[in-house]
């Protein structure tokens, strides 16, 4: 029941993305000149993300799930239950 709900949410999310034609502009490659990188320099485009959000997410999911890591190297463990 709950599993079905989670899967449904993910399917709806992917459907919305596809339906809004978002995929094409994301995947279209182009040669970007230095003076065309203004948008890429915005804080919202920073791949590392917000430091507080990143710390909170990693802390919670590390404590509650069996997988961790991937976005960067390093980071400490804890005995969180």
């Amino acid at each position: 029941m709950h599993a079905s709900r989670s899967i449904l949410i993910s399917v709806v999310l992917l459907g919305l993305l596809g339906g809004c034609s978002i995929i094409k502009p994301i995947t279209t490659t182009e040669d970007v000149k230095p003076w065309q990188k203004g948008i890429l320099a915005k804080p919202e485009m920073e791949l590392a993300g917000d430091p507080i959000d990143k710390y909170v997410d990693e802390h919670i999911y590390f404590s509650k799930e069996g997988s961790t890591g991937g976005s960067s190297v390093g980071g400490g463990g804890c005995g969180c239950n």
Partner: peptide
């Protein structure tokens, strides 16, 4: 940098 509006990353650990 994929295009003027998109940036991506891939890490293998």
């Amino acid at each position: 940098v994929i295009n003027r509006h998109t940036v991506g990353m891939l890490n293998l650990t």
